[in-house]
Amino acid sequence: MIAIQKNNTINLARLQSLIALLFLCAIIAILSDKFLTMDNGWNVLRQIAVNVCISVGMTLIVLTAGIDLSVGSVLALCGAITAGLLKNGVKVPAADLFIGFTILGALLAGIIAGALLGWFNGFVITKFKVPPFVATLAMLTIARGLTMLWTQGHPISNLGPAFSVIGTGWFLGIPVPVWIAGVVVLLAIFITRQTRLGRYIYAIGGNENAAILSGISINKVKLIVYSIAGALAAVGGIMVTSRLDSAQPNAGTGYELDAIAAVVIGGTSLSGGKGSIGGTVMGAVIIGVLNNGLVLLNVSPFWQQVVKGAVILVAVIIDKGGKKK
């Protein structure tokens, strides 16, 4: 009886969004015969993959009662770094040195860059007590500016067929980006549910004072979490760059909002301590299906934005209503 009661509360919230998703799918399927095709299905999932990666990082941050507005810019910068290193390598004229990068090397460099940018966010937040909103807002601009500097404002294109596998390839009948997002999600679920780090993340968001008194190094945890979010934004950036076979200097603009929307629709509380990776994945899927459906139904892009905003509002209001009881 005990176990049933516990699962009830969790499943109810999950069930609610699942019903909403199925309802959404049903409506789109009735209105468009293109929706329920294999091609479209994989297409939707491929598109969702990037947002899932970013949103997972965002969820970890939001669980600590923080926020990261810089993920879109970090995504662009890291995608550009990977593309640039892959294509041009690094030239050090003074030492007459040229370092070329393999695909793996370039990928690693991009992801490490993302982690460092995230770490810097965390450093500013923990060391100087700058509110996460402000610290990451600054990083949003800084990273975008660095992207422009790195790319000189021009796309870095023609990165070769091997690199494009990441964004467009298939493995065992499933698109590679979906594999990547899947692995990211599973790792994040493992971290949040089965590790000390995960517990500390929830503890900090649940009651930061109690967490400090309980002997948790909250600064260390925050640094790790912001670094993970930066690295995941970089993974997203690599997927976007690979899919387009081009690193666009303005890639990822506004992605932070999609990520926050997925987190919120997924039921994670912006004040921290409550929520789950599973919920966020559901949120990302709902946004992805909605995007896809609106396109298939030829809804004008202007109306698309209005509808998306309305869905976010409704989701949050339903969530609030559930909590009041």
Partner: peptide, 27 residues
């Protein structure tokens, strides 16, 4: 230290009893 204000400094009120008890000894 069992602090004076258990709500503000002692507990994660929204979380399970289990999670609250184990937080100090997770290692």
């Amino acid at each position: 230290l069992v602090p004076e204000d258990r709500k503000a400094h002692g507990l994660m009120l929204d979380q399970k009893i289990k999670t609250n008890i184990s937080i100090t000894v997770l290692n």
